[in-house]
């Protein structure tokens, strides 16, 4: 009897592990930066290259930092959602235009609409400090400048309503 039960049990355990593995997304990598201060940066503003904006300029407000690029296909999909978030006025969105051509980025914002309170140009350094490995990625940053959430991939309207917005509301209430 045992002779059959033990292999069957082992097989069942193996199947359970494989089944769990099917549900995992290999591209979802937990960010070690959650709960840590957002990396400091000082970057030029898109279209106004002499004006520099630093992370510390946003101290005291909740902001959503969105890493994008006009070369990024998934960003196009996300753009409508960002426009909706901007229209709701729930949280200012800071665009980090990553590894992009300024002209392409300006074109993109002109033709698709601009959800960003300010768009900063990053050649790659700031993105490395944020641990970015692909666009789009978004970071929710609280009033103390702490990263409280990271969203990998395009933000969907559901993700905004169900995950991010509640965190924005909570972070705004906190002093």
């Amino acid at each position: 009897m045992w002779r059959f039960l033990i292999p069957m049990a082992l097989f069942a355990i193996l199947v359970w592990f494989f089944n769990q593995g099917l549900g995992l997304d290999p591209r979802k990598i937990p960010s070690p930066l959650i709960g840590k201060p957002a990396p400091e940066f000082s970057l030029p503003v898109l279209g106004e290259k002499d004006r520099m904006v630093a992370m510390s300029d946003f101290r005291g407000q909740v902001v959503l930092v969105n890493v994008w690029g006009s070369w990024c296909v998934a960003c196009r999909e996300e753009h409508q959602v960002l426009l909706g978030i901007a229209a709701s006025g729930a949280v200012p969105i800071i665009g980090l235009d990553w590894k992009d051509q300024d002209a392409d980025a300006e074109n993109w914002l002109r033709s698709l609409g601009n959800p960003y309170t300010v768009t900063l140009v990053d050649e790659g350094r700031a993105a490395i400090n944020f641990g970015v490995y692909g666009a789009p990625e978004s970071f929710l940053i609280d009033k103390q400048g702490i990263i409280i959430h990271k969203h990998t991939g395009p933000i969907t309207w559901e993700a905004w309503q169900q995950e991010i917005l509640p965190m924005v509301v909570k972070a705004k209430e906190a002093t």
Partner: peptide, 8 residues
């Protein structure tokens, strides 16, 4: 690198 991207 680990501080930014994790042990991965």
């Amino acid at each position: 690198m680990v501080a930014r991207y994790g042990n991965f």
